[in-house]
Lab assay of single mutants.
Amino acid sequence: MTFKLIINGKTLKGETTTEAVDAATAEKVFKQYFNDNGIDGEWTYDDATKTFTITE
């Protein structure tokens, strides 16, 4: 399955996707992406659209 990440950061904005077997696996991938890029904020997940959103 394809999961999308929408980034609404102070310095970084955009979208990316990842292929994962489930939302929990995608969450781990995206959290690592947050850490690697110094993004910290509030994030949500919409199961209907398989979209994670992080807002700094």
Rank of each mutant, 00 (worst) to 15 (best):
M1W: 12
M1C: 12
M1H: 11
M1P: 13
M1T: 12
T2D: 06
T2H: 08
T2V: 13
T2I: 14
T2A: 05
T2W: 10
F3D: 02
F3A: 03
F3T: 02
F3N: 02
F3G: 02
K4H: 13
K4A: 03
K4M: 06
K4P: 02
L5F: 08
L5R: 00
L5V: 10
I6N: 03
I6D: 01
I6V: 11
I6Q: 03
I7Y: 11
I7N: 01
I7M: 07
I7W: 10
I7A: 02
I7E: 01
N8I: 14
N8R: 12
N8E: 09
N8H: 08
G9S: 10
G9E: 02
G9D: 02
G9H: 08
G9P: 02
G9K: 09
K10Q: 10
K10C: 14
K10R: 12
K10W: 09
T11H: 13
T11A: 08
L12V: 11
L12P: 02
L12K: 10
K13L: 06
K13Q: 09
K13H: 08
K13R: 11
G14R: 11
G14T: 15
G14A: 13
G14Q: 13
G14N: 07
E15G: 07
E15Y: 14
E15N: 06
E15L: 10
E15F: 13
T16C: 15
T16K: 13
T16D: 04
T16W: 15
T16Y: 15
T16M: 15
T17R: 07
T17H: 10
T17V: 07
T17M: 07
T18R: 04
T18L: 14
T18P: 01
T18Q: 04
T18A: 07
E19W: 15
E19R: 14
E19Y: 14
E19K: 12
E19V: 15
E19T: 14
E19G: 04
A20V: 03
A20Y: 02
A20K: 02
A20W: 02
A20P: 01
A20C: 07
V21P: 14
V21F: 10
V21L: 10
V21D: 08
V21W: 11
D22R: 01
D22N: 07
D22S: 05
D22L: 01
D22T: 03
A23P: 07
A23Q: 07
A24F: 07
A24H: 08
T25P: 00
T25Y: 07
T25K: 04
T25S: 11
T25A: 14
T25E: 13
T25V: 05
T25R: 06
A26E: 00
A26T: 00
A26S: 01
A26K: 00
A26N: 01
A26W: 03
E27A: 09
E27C: 14
E27R: 08
E27T: 03
K28D: 06
K28T: 08
V29I: 14
V29F: 15
V29T: 08
V29L: 11
V29K: 09
F30R: 00
F30Q: 00
F30A: 03
F30G: 00
F30P: 00
K31I: 11
K31H: 06
K31L: 09
Q32G: 07
Q32I: 06
Q32K: 12
Y33W: 15
Y33Q: 07
Y33H: 06
F34L: 15
F34G: 14
F34R: 06
F34I: 15
F34Q: 15
F34W: 11
F34E: 08
F34V: 15
F34A: 15
N35Y: 13
N35R: 14
N35F: 13
N35T: 12
N35A: 14
D36I: 11
D36P: 07
D36W: 10
D36H: 08
D36M: 11
D36Y: 07
D36L: 12
D36E: 12
N37S: 11
N37I: 15
N37Y: 15
G38L: 12
G38N: 11
G38H: 12
G38S: 08
G38C: 12
G38P: 11
I39K: 04
I39D: 03
I39A: 05
D40I: 14
D40T: 13
D40R: 13
D40W: 14
D40M: 12
D40Q: 14
G41C: 09
G41L: 08
G41V: 11
G41N: 06
G41S: 04
G41M: 11
G41W: 15
E42Y: 11
E42P: 05
E42I: 14
E42D: 11
W43F: 09
W43L: 14
W43R: 01
T44A: 10
T44N: 06
T44S: 12
T44E: 08
T44P: 00
T44I: 07
Y45D: 00
Y45K: 00
Y45G: 00
Y45L: 01
Y45F: 05
D46T: 03
D46I: 04
D46Y: 02
D46G: 00
D46R: 01
D46V: 03
D46H: 05
D47R: 05
D47C: 04
D47V: 08
D47S: 13
A48Y: 09
A48R: 09
A48T: 11
A48M: 09
T49F: 04
T49L: 06
T49A: 05
K50D: 01
K50T: 03
K50F: 08
K50H: 13
T51K: 01
T51D: 01
T51E: 03
T51H: 01
T51V: 05
T51L: 03
F52L: 01
F52D: 00
F52I: 01
F52P: 00
T53S: 05
T53N: 03
T53E: 04
T53K: 04
I54A: 04
I54W: 15
I54D: 00
I54K: 02
I54N: 01
I54Y: 14
I54S: 02
I54T: 03
I54E: 00
T55P: 01
T55W: 11
T55E: 06
E56W: 13
E56S: 07
E56Y: 12
E56D: 07
E56T: 12
E56R: 03
